[in-house]
């Protein structure tokens, strides 16, 4: 079997889901650590970070790669969901099965919410930063002129509705990670009596810590506004 053919098999597609998923997990780690600058209470730190991220050529390359992973994760999710729905057949059960991980049964729904969040999130900040939408003022730090993304963020997080939406989205992300993290390793065949419990623990810790940190940002900024 050619590897192209392998990739279009159920397992191949799942491997694509898991590889892209693991890379997105890494992306989240980077993203959240950068965003922590928002909580340093000074606009400059965040603005420098944003400036670096939008101008460093290496970051640009990495960012484009991550866009591909996002896309792959979403496209494969749609293909697999359609395939699985077809496999389940036309006649639904009258009483449905309650076994297994409950979160895993809603990965598609959770993922869709995250996708919607992603669009809104990009429109709100990324598009503004790239001057595709809205207006952004500039600020000068250490003699370098850069965009004042901090103000954009601070303004939006003064709105309780937006803060609530962000917090809810982070709950959704937490659930998605709760299953996704360990599941990615299972799909790659990395299941082993010795390491699986460690992976499972790390996955759960990660799926709590990262969304909590993300969620804390709008809450703290709202309280400080």
């Amino acid at each position: 079997m050619s590897w192209q053919k392998s990739l279009s098999s159920t397992i191949g597609r799942k491997i694509m889901m898991s590889l892209s998923g693991i890379l997105l997990i890494l992306f989240l780690a980077g993203h959240v650590s950068g965003n922590m600058t928002l909580l340093m209470g000074k606009a400059d730190a965040f603005n420098m970070y944003a400036h670096f991220m939008s101008t460093n050529p290496l970051v640009q390359v990495v960012a484009n790669v991550f866009k591909l992973f996002f896309l792959a994760h979403i496209v494969y999710a749609i293909i697999l969901t359609a395939q699985n729905k077809k496999a389940r057949g036309g006649q639904a059960y009258k009483v449905t099965n309650k076994d297994g991980s409950q979160v895993s049964k809603y990965m598609g729904v959770l993922g869709s919410v995250i996708a919607v969040f992603l669009v809104v999130h990009l429109a709100q900040y990324w598009a503004v930063m790239h001057e595709l939408r809205g207006e952004i003022s500039t600020t000068t730090i250490d003699g370098v002129e850069m965009k004042d993304l901090y103000s954009v963020v601070a303004v939006s997080y003064a709105n309780p509705m937006i803060v609530a939406a962000y917090v809810i989205s982070m709950f959704v992300l937490a659930f998605h990670l709760w299953h996704g993290f360990a599941s990615a390793f299972q799909t790659l065949g990395l299941n082993n009596k010795r390491y699986t419990p460690i992976i499972a623990f790390l996955g759960k810790a990660y799926s709590i810590i990262v969304p909590v940190l993300f969620g804390a940002i709008p809450v703290v900024m709202f309280l400080n506004s």
Partner: peptide, 8 residues
């Protein structure tokens, strides 16, 4: 279908 590691 494909395996979603649900464990059911």
């Amino acid at each position: 279908g494909a395996c979603t590691n649900t464990g059911a």
